[in-house]
Amino acid sequence: MNGGRKIVTMQKRRARTGYLFILPFIIGFILFMARPMIQSLIMSLSDVKIVPGQGYQMTWIGLDNFHTALSVDPYFNRYITDEIGRMVINTIATLVLSFVIAVILNQDFKGRTLARAIFFLPVILSSGVLPGIERQNEFYDMMAGVAESVEGAAGVNISASLQNLLSVSGVGSGVFDVVFQMIDAIYDIVMASGIQIIIFLTGLQAISPSLYEAADVEGCTAWESFWKITFPMVSPLLLVNSIYTIVDFFMKNDNRVMERITEVMYKDFRFGVSSAMSWIYFGVALVFILLSSFIISRAVKSAQ
């Protein structure tokens, strides 16, 4: 406040105000994120017993819970490998599809507002309890099976017959299996890409139109300006979107690993095992997030 140190105090005061603004987050992070993380780590390493009226007691048992989760539990193992496979395919498909849709929705055409409104619906319809509740119903699967067999009998199951054709003509089957898996899962993929479309749209709208004008004057075709302007400008958002997609996929309610963890916790009350499961799950998710951000940031750099 006095004389020569005024600049320093000003800085300090601003720093203090800044801390005041983010104080809620700091409190929340320490109390409801960092501490529960430590607690759940300790929990996953111990045997948790609920004592009525006294809270709960924990005894250290080392890695036993992890052992239970990975090699005793009959489902966890299988579910986690299944879900990872599904996640890799779905993430790639979601990114490509949402990018294409965002590019289309960014163009000028009749009924754009309506189309944007419809593509926003998945944000509502795929959130929270809604997707899971249909999955847990066997009838849904049954109906899907019936529909497929009916289509097959009438000869209108395009993807299957195309697949047959390609495999008969000797085209490598591994890659095509993945592609057809994506096509069959297109509904899930569209439902999962609501937010991603919006994020890409924001990126596209931030590109200044004068760039395209300049490219047009220089004689660029639309295809060229797409790869030279649109893609490099939007590619940083690929990273955000891929992380969001992976996280979203891992946290969805229709995810069977999630269901298993919840089941172990709320039905069997084996808190230690469920903590160990979620830590394994989180570890796997983290590996994939890091891996994909590494790959994508490399690719983005080379694209620019």
């Binding site: 409801f32 994120m33 501490r35 529960p36 993380m37 607690q39 759940s40 929990m43 992380i243 996280v247 891992f250 946290m251 999630m258 963890i261 919840t262 916790m265 808190f271 469920s274 903590s275 979620s278 830590w279 799950y281 989180f282 998710a285 983290l286 997030i289």
Partner: peptide, 10 residues
């Protein structure tokens, strides 16, 4: 990034 499921039991 951290799924809240990780800390749900805690």
């Amino acid at each position: 990034i951290i799924p809240p499921q990780t800390i749900q039991s805690a």
